[in-house]
Design a protein around this nucleic acid. Structure first.
Lengths: 188, 188
DNA sequence: GTCTATAGCCCGATAGAC
DNA sequence: GTCTATCGGGCTATAGAC
């Protein structure tokens, strides 16, 4: 059986993902979690405090998911490409990246930090794999793994934006395939 | 001298860019535009109708800006790369792409259409330039210009997300440089 | 820990005077 | 065209009983 505390955090994670920070009200959280007003404000002093807890859990979950994939078997470059293809619900977007649209999140350091840390972690891990790929000869020399890691992350995040704008996963898949082709292009 | 109608639309454009659809209230629009409640509801029957007008103007302005760059002088590939580098206020994000985070925008066809149309237009234009670049030998054969166009768009949109999450333009610039390196990579 | 009650303000919209 | 008044409801909390 889950505690009120857990239900509050899980519900907030879901609502932040769907509606963002501004669009998520304490009242909606309480109703969806089946937790009363008094209970919520007993556990968290404010909407921001609850949102921060939810963000931190979402960030940890996302990193764990990505870590399992990137630490998995296979050639380093293949793992990077698998990350690009990693199936999530494309039209829902990224539970972390979505929050970068909220000015209140970006303006508040405690709310922004989970976003910054998550992308920094993934970027570092991707950079390492791309370096390995270069050492192994699967990736062209002369390319900067750090820059490419940022490109990989951006294609994922931007792909979500294009997909939601088109109400179709196609632009996401095209962007990923385009980058995949560039990363695997053999010298002629 | 600007009319109330114009001030309403311009103000709504600015607020949608900053705060998104859910975060933009009729009251805030009225105050910032210096226009009364009655006046606003005389010109627009609802918040959605005003938002739609603002979106359409923003989309037209953005397309015109991009058109001028992409129709400009220089090699086709250089123009695509110039689009990637096109200086806007990176931390503000994209006035069109930002709205794809709003569930109310994505769910309402009239509100989503300007987004879809804008990205479709830019994508088509980029595809044409990349085809020209291939014909001219500046871009490697065997790559699909349609897919690469989606990648270019995604890097821009995703770069904004990473930049806002990091509160720094650096990740944006890295992502762009990474893609630029891939697109200009010479065969060895 | 959780409840109910209440506060003060904002939401999106409508009505009708001028 | 623009004004003010008003509607029913939601917003983010706070207070104090249980």
């Amino acid at each position: 059986m889950s505690t009120s505390l857990d239900r509050l955090i899980e519900t907030t994670q879901a609502l932040l993902w769907e509606r963002g920070y501004a669009g998520t009200s304490p009242r909606a959280i309480q109703e969806q979690a089946g937790v009363g007003q008094g209970s919520m404000y007993h556990h968290f002093r404010s909407k921001a405090a609850l949102a921060q807890a939810a963000e931190e859990r979402s960030a940890a979950e996302l990193i764990e998911e990505v870590r399992q994939l990137l630490d998995g078997p296979g050639d380093p470059l293949d793992r990077v490409l698998a990350y690009l293809r990693l199936e999530r619900d494309i039209l829902k977007g990224c539970r972390i990246g979505r929050l970068a649209a909220d000015p209140e999140v970006v303006a508040d350091h405690s709310l922004r930090k989970p976003l910054e840390d998550t992308f920094a972690w993934i970027s570092t891990r991707l950079t390492g794999l791309l370096q390995e790929a270069q050492a192994g000869g699967q990736l062209q020399q002369g390319l900067d793994p750090r820059l490419l890691a940022a490109t990989v992350l951006a294609v994922r995040q931007g792909g979500y934006v294009l997909a939601r704008a088109a109400s179709s996963t196609v632009p996401y898949e095209q962007a990923v395939e385009g980058l995949t082709a560039l990363l695997t292009a053999r010298r002629t």
